[in-house]
Structure formats: structure tokens, C-alpha cells
Amino acid sequence: MTSNPPLKAEINLQQLLEAKSLERCPFPIPTGWFFVDYSENLKTGEVRNVTLFDQEWVLFRGESGKVGMTDPYCPHLGAHMGHGGSVCGDHLRCPFHHWEYDTSGWCKNIPYGKVPPPITKKQAILRALPVQERYGLIWAWFHPACEEPSWELPAIPAMEEPGWTGSRRGSWTANTAIQEIAENGVDTAHLKFLHGAAGIPPVACEFDGHIMSFSIGGTYIVAKAYGPGLNVLEFTQEGSAATMISYTQPVTVDKSQMNMSFRHRDFPEGSKEQLVARKIIDHMIGAAEGETSAGFESVDFVIWNHKKYRPKPLLCDGDGPVLQFRKWFKQFYVADPKILEKV
């Protein structure tokens, strides 16, 4: 005896209930190295409030040039050190009672106390994120359980070695989680239907720990993602090439700041290779500085800013390695298992 298929009204009701239960951005903040600011923007002795990883932090640069990024509230009596706090040597000084903290969160000075709390001799008492400066950028390691970095930032020749040039950058705000933005890299079908590309380029992916290597269109785009916060993409065309370094920031659970730098080999002035490299970059970022469009174009933001995440998507054979990508990305989440069931 066979059961009758569900009525169309019943199917529609199931779909409606599922749609109502979906969250736009069910993801926690992922673990990894993330861009904070350009090194040139943080001056010696400066103290600044920044919002990243779904909370506020205090960013400062000590007199030796060392950068610190800490929780904003003093462990003593809770003063916000981003409002009136100052740099004293290489320490962040609280404006309330002048307790001082180093870039690792250790209390280094209580100017009036003779008997400091015993815990200050045993451990750091102010949460401080591991910070590095690479490629002219300030990076912070975020882990919700405060674990130390489990991988290092990679060497990027285009940003660190001589023989490269280019100072163009772009920055765009998307009202969605960082995973939704990154998923575009393996969803090449949307290039035809959303962007109007001539066809759907093939995509190939390999996953190795925190690194995802992928190529689009054969050798046209060859890329590596180093965790959720850094992507390096090489574009090759007509015997020339350009590099895009993408470093998106998770500002909150449903807001991301996309940032990119564009570089190319220092080809001879007026050469075909130079012209092609600049053409590739123009296509990626827009033909003029300050444009709001890029290679992904504003149409992507229309989708990102309004879509809901489907944890169990209905996929067909032309959709690319979406599920493999999601499995790889899930390793960067540390949260309640009930939350992770949604991603």
C-alpha cells in the first residue's frame, strides 16, 4: 500500500513555516585573523574605539610602535578606556585611576596601591587580542574562547616583495555575515544570471585545514583563502596578471565590511602588460576611484542585504561546491551546538 503524496497546500504550508523560522544570519563570529585598520592610520600614542567581532574594543599604538587591541572596560572599576584613556609608554592607561595595561592585557602599574590584587601577578586581567602588522595592515586574532592563534598569516609577495606596485583600495559595507560573502567565490552560477556573464565558469576547490584553494575559469582566477578573513586572488589575462587581496571584517553578526587592495607587477610604463593589468584592476574595482561598484558590482549587495540563509539548500548539479565550502567554513565557529545546527 502506497501513501498519497502531500497536497500542494500542505507543501506550501511546510515551505512557509520553514521560511518564517529561518534567520537571516544565524552565524556566530568566526575564529581567525582579521583586518583591523591600515598601519598608516594609527599614529604613535593614539587611542581609538573600534567595533569588530560584535563588540567594541580599544585600539592603541605605544610609544615604541607596538599595537594593542583590548576590551574597553577596565577590570578595576569598569571605566571605558576608549573615552579619556591614554598611552603611557607602551601601556594603555585607564583615565579613572591610571591603572596601566600592556598589549597582552597584564596590569603593569597601579600608581597608588602598595598591595595589588594577587591575580595581577599570575595572569593578564584585561582581555587583549593577539595583534600583528603585515602587508601595511593591522591584524587581530579573534577566538571567542580566547585561544591563541592556530595558524600564521601567510607571505603575500604582491604586498611584501619588491617589483610590485599599485595603491588602489576599496571598501564596501554589506548587511550580512562574512560567510555569505565568501560563499560567492564558489557559487559561479550567479555570475551568469545575476551579473550577465556569457557563461558559467568552472570552479575547482581543494581544502586543507584552514586553507581553501580554488580556481575559476581554469587559470583565469587562482585563489587561496586563509581562514575567513583573508583571500588572495590572482587574475591572469592576455599574458599579464593582477592580484586582489580581500580582507573582510566581521563587524557584527549581520554586518561585514569588505576591504580589498589591488596590486600588479611593476611592468614597464606604457607596456601591454601594464595596460592589461590596470584593465583587470579597473574591472574589479570600477574604472574610477571612489566608485561604489566593483567586479562583484552593486547587484551582489542587493542580494546580500536582504537574503535569508538556508542551512539545507535545494541544490542542482550546476551549483558548484557550496556544501563542501560550508563544511570547511564551519570549522571556524566555536559556539553552542544548537547554534551550529543552523549553519
Rank of each mutant, 00 (worst) to 15 (best):
V203K: 09
E148C: 06
Y112L: 01
Q179T: 15
F142Q: 11
G199D: 11
F27R: 02
T176S: 09
W33M: 15
A335C: 13
A79H: 01
S104F: 02
G290H: 11
A79D: 11
R134F: 08
R326V: 12
F332N: 14
G85I: 11
E46Y: 11
W99C: 11
I200A: 00
V334Y: 10
V302D: 08
V222H: 15
I178M: 11
T252D: 07
V302T: 13
F267V: 03
F301R: 01
P130S: 07
E180V: 10
S215Y: 08
K108C: 13
P311I: 00
I11Y: 11
F53Y: 14
E206P: 09
H143C: 10
M258C: 05
Q132N: 11
I221M: 13
Y38Q: 06
G239F: 01
E56A: 05
C25N: 15
Y38W: 09
E40G: 11
G89L: 08
V67S: 02
W151D: 11
N305E: 06
M81F: 04
A177G: 13
S150E: 07
H195K: 06
G32Y: 11
A174G: 14
G68V: 02
L77W: 00
P116I: 02
V67K: 00
A223S: 15
S213V: 10
A177W: 09
E238N: 10
N49Y: 00
L233Q: 12
E238I: 03
D187I: 00
T120L: 03
A197Y: 12
E23N: 02
R265N: 02
K272L: 02
S64P: 09
G209K: 03
N12Q: 12
K338C: 03
V36L: 04
D102M: 07
L7M: 08
P117S: 00
H97E: 14
Q331S: 01
Y135I: 07
